[in-house]
Simulated assay, not measured.
Amino acid sequence: MAANFSSVPILDFALVSDPARKPEFILQLRHALINVGFLYLKNPPVARKDIDALIDYIPRLFALPQQAKDSIRMANSPHFLGYSKLGAEFTKGKTDYREQFDFATPHETQWRPGAPEYLRLWGPSQWPDEDQLPGFKDTMERYLAQVQSLSYDFSRLLAEAFSLAPDALAHFYDSDEFMQHRGKVVKYPANDGSLSDQGVGPHYDAGFLTFLLQASAHPGLQVQNLSGEWIDAPPIPGTFVVNIGKALEFATQGLARATSHRVLSPPIGSTPRYSVPFFQNISLNARLVDEVLEFPPEVLKLKELRGEAAATDSVNFTEFDREPSGKVNLIGRVKSHPDVAERHYPDLFKQIFPQGLPAQVSAY
């Protein structure tokens, strides 16, 4: 019988700076990584004034004229960065009822003709016109930089939780100038009764770690426990929700657990739900099948004690056993944004969609 969970644990980052209590945090983190795959992180080291400023911008970002939003639509970008209108993304063959902007940390694309196509996945963001939303770009980039720093600190804590050296995961990342991490600003409008309640369908995240700011008081995030039940993860002020991505699960041979999750739309008559996920990437060239981490027997035993999870509703990012990280991520983006892929990755688009752009796709 698998170990199970009925709620998402809350960890206090303030314990990390207290030598007497840091071991307590590490043990809590080990439990969350192995048995849950999700946690709330209280007191994250990100300036509250920047979080509040970003939250203040979000309704104004989505209130921009449609023409302004369309001018930075994702279809313009081979990096899958920019604006996606309501209903433009798909998960498991159903429309995701959300509107969103994808931004990323600053990066100049490393792709050149003849290089692997997946290197085009990273590159400059598209930003709203500064005159229409003054200060937003600076605020968003300042926020992303702080969460990026937190994500690297957290990776070192994660290594400690597995009884590895603090830098045991460092070789999965390139130097800063060759790395890019992605963020989204997402609006889930209230269900209008014409579609399902799928804000975003069941899925895994691709990279190592995701840090989610639930930027309004609406519930909707749910995580799937080991017996397949959906557990609510409602907003808790002053926290991030942190979850494990499929790359980290693969790199740790399943010791860290990627957990299936979804978002339900706010009910009819509600105000919109807003959220800001940050996706920590690893090197585009990393081949996880070639990287073997050696864990102490007592840590590996914890995986056995957890047991096997029941079948989940998520099946994405299964190619890490044969493809570099960049190719796995590119396949995921092509499947969930076929209109972008048709324009910028025509060969891969034809492989995945030989009949052309579908009216509905079986995606993530």
Rank of each mutant, 00 (worst) to 15 (best):
T210V: 15
S194K: 13
P267R: 12
S275Q: 02
S265H: 07
A256V: 08
V200A: 12
V242E: 12
A247D: 10
L221D: 07
A258D: 04
K184C: 12
K184D: 09
F208G: 07
D232H: 05
W230F: 05
M179G: 03
L195N: 13
L213H: 07
Q222A: 11
L221N: 04
S270D: 14
S196H: 11
S216A: 00
H181I: 04
T210Q: 05
H261P: 07
P267I: 08
F208I: 14
F240W: 12
P266Q: 09
S260Q: 05
P219Q: 08
A233R: 04
G245D: 02
P189N: 12
A206R: 05
I231N: 01
A206T: 13
A258Q: 08
Q224M: 13
H261S: 14
S260A: 15
V263E: 01
I244E: 10
P235H: 06
N225Q: 09
G269H: 07
H181C: 10
M179Q: 14
Q180C: 00
T239P: 01
N191K: 06
F178N: 14
K184V: 11
Q253V: 03
L264D: 15
P202W: 01
A247Y: 09
N225D: 15
Q180V: 00
T239H: 02
G254D: 08
P235N: 02
Q198P: 00
V241N: 06
L264M: 13
